[in-house]
Nucleic acid binder design. Structure first.
Lengths: 150, 150
DNA sequence: CCTGAAAACCATGCATG
DNA sequence: CATGCATGGTTTTCAGG
């Protein structure tokens, strides 16, 4: 992201990825083609890595979410838990962390029983112990990243 | 989300919110106008709550992320921490949780000093104690919600 | 709730400055 | 690196079933 024009494009597209080039164009004061070229460069250079629709978890049948902290059972073994867990679609995010646990997952499921099954799958797939914190209510999430220069 | 056609539309749009109606149309076997009407209904009924571009946090100057668990200092007071913190743009998500803490935040900042300042802001704004877990590495995040029927 | 078609709008590539 | 234009594709609206 070179300059403030790119920053404006990124900020606007982060908020509304379906905005037309014409709309972005008048917002940043450049021609449509110039905006298109910049947007493409932002995509291919990896500043913009993808697009998503934000869904209402309850409306799509995943009303229960949780954090699962995981710790390898055998710390002497090479540890590729993130890879081993990647195939589980209930896992929305996987971070390694500084703290008691090695990793933290954010997961979404339909029911407590599904959460139980998922925890079991995680333990078996990655040979880890787990500590799960259930989310009671989500006040907000997926807020767009606030850019330094926008 | 009434039926399997809506489910397909939602699944596809979640993955690629910039897909054209024509593309969705041939994927679900309905005319373009029908798909457009369904998509609009999914938006206005709150199944699809918005769209986002996924940005590379490092490329946009927020390479440091963390979880901040927060606990009200005075449990007898009415507690509206989420509201009190909503104005802090570094906070990407805020959940209430079952566990030792009352809430957990996911935050993104540029530097450790910014994290320190943010933690201070959180404590002051919401009258809470905090426990912060720094993210060392993100293996994946923002994976699309896997739909029950897609 | 769907289709199909007309009109407005938009993205794309290229020639040019 | 930006512009403006020509073209083909896309969205939008509406009449009709």
């Amino acid at each position: 992201m070179d300059d403030s024009v790119d920053a404006s494009i990124v900020a606007e597209v982060a908020r509304d990825p379906r905005a037309t080039l014409a709309h972005l164009s008048e917002r940043v004061g450049l021609g449509v083609s110039a905006v298109q070229a910049r947007l493409r460069r932002l995509e291919s250079s990896g500043v913009i890595t993808g697009y998503r629709a934000i869904l209402d978890p309850e409306a799509v049948g995943k009303p229960l979410s949780a954090f699962i902290e995981i710790t390898p059972l055998d710390p002497s073994q090479p540890d590729n838990a993130p890879e081993l867990l990647e195939h589980l679609p209930e896992i929305e995010a996987c971070h390694s962390i500084a703290g008691d646990a090695s990793y933290i997952l954010f997961v979404r499921v339909a029911t407590p029983r599904d959460l139980e099954a998922l925890i079991r799958d995680v333990r078996l797939a990655a040979s880890v112990s787990t500590r799960t914190t259930v989310v009671l209510q989500t006040f907000y999430e997926n807020r767009p990243i606030a850019l330094a220069s926008s």
